[in-house]
């Protein structure tokens, strides 16, 4: 993973009714907060019903990023959008549990495919 010193924005892609966010860089705190706002803004702008956050490249999730992700899920659900986090690495999962950050209420899926299945199920259930 490269050290990204510029204020690069993390791309958010819309596919059908979903937003797909692929986090590819080691984020600093400000960037994480920005991403949160960005995603909520996009939900409002596009009317998306679901957000898939891909963290398969993230080698580390500390307490701040962890809280950002669970905060993201709560905020999005208030805006009537489901959030699924996919691709967490085993080392990251272990460390999060050891940190005491178990992120209850956050939906996760093993990979993109399952993530979309889950999003579809969640959206259907809420209709």
């Amino acid at each position: 993973m490269n050290i990204d010193f510029q204020e690069r924005r993390i791309p958010i892609i819309k596919i059908r009714d979903y937003l797909i966010v692929s986090i590819q860089v080691d984020m600093h705190d400000k960037m994480a907060v920005q991403l949160q706002s960005q995603i909520l803004h996009e939900i409002e702008r596009t009317g998306a019903k679901g957000v898939l956050i891909d963290i398969s490249v993230l080698e580390m999730v500390d307490s701040f990023i962890g809280r950002m992700l669970s905060g993201m899920a709560s905020m999005a659900s208030i805006m009537d959008a489901a959030v699924v986090i996919v691709g967490m690495q085993p080392a990251v999962a272990i460390t999060l549990v050891e940190l005491g950050l178990e992120m209850p209420g956050v939906n996760t899926a093993l990979n993109m495919e399952r993530g979309i299945e889950l999003l579809e199920k969640m959206i259907n259930d809420s209709l």
Binding site: D29, M60, D62, F64, P90, A91, E98, L99
Partner: peptide, 17 residues
Amino acid sequence: GIVEQTRITTAVSELFR
């Protein structure tokens, strides 16, 4: 190993913050 690397990196991230 990867898990140990992740543990120490995460720990220091908390301290730096």
